[in-house]
Amino acid sequence: MDNTEIEILLVEDNSNDAELTIRALTKAKIANSIVHLHDGAQAIDFLFGKGEYAKRDINNKPQLILLDLKMPKVDGLEVLQKIKADELTKRIPVVILTSSKENPDIEKSYALGANSYIVKPVDFEGFAKAITDLGFYWILLNQNPL
């Protein structure tokens, strides 16, 4: 495993959404290093060095996690809970991605310590703008305490 600094960890099961998100972030030149994982179980393994990521240096932490809520196996809320419960990961800013602001899980996310959330807009411009704004804020402006 390489030790390249990870800027953004994107946990998203929808490959279309993932592709468009990555494209928007790269196009806005916000992040060069984006890791895309497809479900919650993978994300936990990645962050805590388990399973297929057993040999990964878990101290190489992402600067921002973009976390989709609705995912198969382990959903976003569970991943969020694990991240915020562990001393190692709890300071990493987590931005929740959701399809609807109606989602009652948004409130639960905040309760669990999510830093922000993005409703994925239907139109691409809106989506790209929301993603870039968020990325810009958390990667470039927000001073990570660690």
Binding site: L20, E102, N103, P121, D123, F124, F127
Partner: peptide, 22 residues
């Protein structure tokens, strides 16, 4: 239903919009 409509219908629509934009 409204949640799943918004989630499930918006997802593909976002993809259509996104790829058309590209």
């Amino acid at each position: 239903f409204s949640y799943s409509v918004s989630h499930d219908l918006r997802g593909p629509l976002r993809a259509v919009n996104g790829y058309a934009k590209i």
